[in-house]
Simulated scan of single mutants.
Amino acid sequence: MLTFIIRRIAAGAVLLLVISLLSYLLLSIPHNDVGRQLLGQSAAQSAVDAKNTSLGLDRPVLAQYTDWLSHAVRGDFGASWFTSEDVTQAVAGRLPVTLSLMLGVTLVTAVASFLLGTWAGVRRGAVDRFLQIAAVAGYALPGFLVTLVLVLVFAVNLNWFPAIGYTALGDSPTGWLSTITLPVLALSVSSVAGVSQQVRGAVIDVLRQDYVRTLRARGLSARSIVFRHVLRNASAPALSLLGMQFVGLLGGAVLVEQIFGLPGIGSMTVAYTTRGDIPVIMALVMLTVIGVVLINLAVDILIGWLNPKARVA
């Protein structure tokens, strides 16, 4: 298992390096006159050139990237070109918001998907048909429509949760829970729809295997067969999809954070990308890639623990 984990960590490090290089090169292609954007259209060209030089934009792109990388590995992502704010502190201030959403959605998706998918796969019949219809509907409904319905019903009409705003966990645990409940539910609908269908299909396939019939013939209870044998072998595809869903959540978080007024990474990404603020954008890209690598590593370790054959892959 240790060798398996080391291989996954090494692959993640290589991915980080490749993504950082490609991202920096792509962000440098437009050749926006950053100095002109900062100083205004009426600024003298000499002042604009001096500003670009002070930012290091007069050097080759690879030299800029090497300098950025040497600082980034030490946790120093520099300062924003447009606000002069320390990038690390700016991102760290918004990270808990988005992290709360991501972990909440992942937890809700995992629990709901495995319960619903297993229930439908074992019971079949009307339960199975209902889940399939509900999954298609949940996957097809636009995210913004689900979000608006949740706000109108639970925040405006019933007044159970706040419509906008965010309360930090350290300030008030109950306030934090109330402010992330609706955003988490809004992001979880399509995720649960997709993962539950994967669990259902995997459970049905495993239940058809010969060894399951053998276990039944030996007199094992249905509960024991499902929870000790079927789920263990049916979990791998669903866990892989759950890890992929995490990447898709980042795009959905942008819309949800804007609707609920959450000061998270998603809204920050939109604001700084439109400006072309490379130090901030690169920090956000690296944070996203690190999150994806860690989630996939956790999924691979869990799959390797459930199925030792996967460790040789």
Rank of each mutant, 00 (worst) to 15 (best):
L302T: 13
L241N: 07
V256F: 01
Y272T: 13
S20D: 01
A13D: 07
P96G: 01
M268I: 00
L231Q: 02
V195L: 05
L16H: 06
V97D: 03
D86Y: 02
G219W: 09
A120G: 10
A298M: 09
A11H: 11
A134Y: 00
D300L: 06
S20G: 03
T83N: 05
S188I: 03
D128K: 05
T274N: 14
L62Y: 12
G175Y: 11
V111T: 11
G291S: 07
A253T: 09
L99E: 03
P30E: 14
L69V: 15
V226I: 11
R94H: 06
I265Y: 06
V299H: 06
L152H: 08
S28R: 09
M102N: 03
T98K: 00
A72I: 10
L148R: 06
T174G: 11
A313H: 09
S178N: 12
A238D: 08
F82R: 00
L187E: 01
R59F: 11
L16C: 14
Q45F: 12
Y211A: 09
T274E: 15
V280P: 02
V34C: 12
L158V: 00
V73M: 02
L294R: 04
F77I: 05
M268Q: 05
I290F: 15
L150Q: 01
D210G: 09
Q197G: 14
R218G: 12
A186G: 10
L294A: 15
L255P: 10
F246N: 04
I9F: 13
G143M: 09
M244F: 15
V18W: 11
D76M: 10
G75P: 03
A236L: 05
A234M: 06
A168Y: 11
L95W: 04
S113E: 04
T214S: 14
P237T: 05
S42L: 15
Y24G: 03
V206Q: 07
R208N: 15
Q37G: 13
L26M: 14
W160V: 02
T273F: 15
